[in-house]
Design a protein around this nucleic acid. Structure first.
Lengths: 351, 351
DNA sequence: CTGTTAGCGCCTTCAG
DNA sequence: CTGAAGGCGCTAACAG
């Protein structure tokens, strides 16, 4: 069963353009032409070459083509956590747009770790990817700007341009936090917990700022109306469930909680149920993202809807446009919207 | 603002090992040694080279390395739909294991389209990826076997080896379907709808077979006890919601429904609510996968739990082992388990 | 229309 | 320990 060549190698070397040429009795450049300029090759020569290709099992060598200057067919994408339903939908939007352009997608989860992000960025840059879509783990963008300047286009995903010389697709998080707070304030809540994630995440800071402004506008004293509670990593349902203990320990107890995403809200619902606290009667809960399952939770989740799939598609659009002649960096901005369901209700005084 | 070189190019050519050598006053092979055999280079020479690298902004050229014979740092993965929460978790497991091995991951969704799958496979093979993890869109595996024989290792994900000369990570779907049916039969249900997806998907056929066997074992006439209903693509909550109309139109009406995944079950819950049909009092619903949100649905979803993340990790493990000397193809098999919650209940006769 | 040639950037001999 | 040379597979020029 040994190969004739005597190569002990695991993986036999693939047939090259040269073997095809030999098998078809033509030169290598003719084979190359069949591949890249079929029109300029005589029909019967072409057919002979094509037969030779399937005969020797020829497969193009992407590395050699790229070395020769062909544009890369790979784009990269770094998200905080690809398993999170929000990012999973964003990623699918990216993938679909890239596929239309004949590109493949490398994905990576940073788990909000800058070191991991840099590691991925370096590997992708070495591969010479066509560009990288990044939901940054930190708000320091200089690393990304330098990467872009060195020749690998970078598009920010779910992050504002923030003065950086990059394309960006953003969602107005200040607005999102604002409408969440406005909703609760209109229902009479005057003490609201804000569940945020790892410190320093830009989108969460912005949402908190939106909440703060809404409270100020309503004439409230933020220091007593707003209770900050961090959710430790990893941000899973179980962890968010456990955080409920902290929420309930605050005195005076908040009557409503704004979660930084729907997974955390799911954990809150579970934890509150565990404590025998009725939602929304004794506690209003509001999520963020409006993932698929939000509508069918018990109770159905009031949340802030973000355009997830479209976010991804738009980002990929920008990336693909980076190569075009007169390209200018631009920011696309989406506005999130409140979706009122059953997890929020008017404050019952004396509850 | 024009570059001095007068290059109108979008993307300046990156610095090569040669420019580093020139800047450091050494030869290219010394630079190469600094990169690949740092130990054999004199300390001060090495430092000089390293300074030169950062000075000229050197980045390794992956294409050139690969052409020279370096192993690829990329693995591919083809799933039916990466945005589906089941596959998103599988994919995260793959990603984590690959990252430990210093590999990147290309993902692709086939949407159960063989043409799309083949397209992705071809592109990945041309790139010379280290291997490809595939949840096949069809049960014809010859294409994959040939790919593997040509030198690109293939690992089947959530699919049995089925006699193919490939590694595989499988979950016992017949068993899964069986326990779902056993549960409903024990509750007294005698007319059960099975919601399946696109025809020909192996895992769904197997689950149906499990259901069939359970019915037979219980002494039922399958032709009257089992009602097959297909859910058209794309398999979204909305589509599954609409399918409820078909379920209810069947005469005599089924009293329980087994869904092929939790997303479809979610749609069923929504559609049944729309029709004013109480779950589980008037209709029992059972899902598949046990995704994160299943526990918190209204009502909490009875479902079949699959080891999603572990499935991915195990598959990546097998792929990484393909290069090892005495490698033999193997199958790893997981067993799914029933998780009883609130969406199933005893049959109320005369309901 | 087809063949010849010269590298793309890197790494691995083999001499010094 | 360092330098010089060849070639991985492919394509863009140019010659025929």
């Amino acid at each position: 069963m040994r190969q004739d060549k005597g190569e002990s190698a695991q993986r036999a070397r693939r047939a090259s353009i040269r073997q095809v040429a030999a098998a078809a009795g033509v030169s290598t450049s003719t084979v190359s032409n069949v591949l890249n300029n079929p029109d300029i090759v005589a029909t019967d020569t072409r057919r002979r070459v094509e037969d030779a290709m399937s005969e020797v099992g020829y497969v193009r060598n992407g590395a050699a083509r790229q070395l020769r200057g062909a544009p890369s067919t790979i784009a990269g994408c770094l998200l905080l956590d690809t398993a999170n339903p929000f990012f999973a939908e964003v990623s699918r939007g990216i993938e679909d747009r890239l596929t239309e352009a004949g590109c493949l997608l490398i994905v990576g989860s940073t788990d909000v770790r800058v070191a991991q992000e840099n590691n991925y960025l370096r590997m992708m840059e070495e591969l010479g990817v066509r560009g990288i879509l990044v939901n940054p783990a930190s708000s320091r963008l200089d690393q990304l700007v330098r990467l872009s300047a060195r020749g690998t286009p970078v598009v920010l995903v779910d992050h504002p341009q923030a003065g950086a010389d990059l394309c960006a697709v953003a969602v107005d998080d200040v607005h999102g936090g604002g409408v969440a707070a406005d909703h609760l304030l209109a229902l009479g809540h005057r003490r609201i917990a804000f569940l945020s994630g790892r410190a320093g995440v830009r989108s969460l800071r912005d949402r908190r700022e939106g909440v703060r402004r809404a409270m100020t506008k309503a004439g409230l004293d933020v220091s007593s109306a707003l209770v900050d509670i961090p959710v430790p990593e990893p941000c899973t349902v179980e962890v968010a469930d456990a955080v409920v203990d902290q929420v309930l320990a605050v005195s005076p107890r908040p009557t409503a909680v704004i979660c930084f995403n729907d997974v955390v809200a799911l954990g809150q619902l579970r934890g509150l149920r565990r404590h025998g606290i009725a939602v929304p009667e004794q506690m209003s809960v509001i999520g963020y993202d409006d993932v698929q399952f939000a509508e069918q939770l018990s109770p159905a989740l009031t949340t802030i809807r973000q355009p997830k799939y479209q976010l991804g598609r738009a980002a990929a659009d920008l990336l693909l446009a980076e190569n075009l002649p007169g390209h200018l960096h631009q920011e696309i901005r989406f506005t999130p919207e409140l979706v009122v369901r059953a997890s929020t209700a008017p404050l019952v005084t004396g509850g």
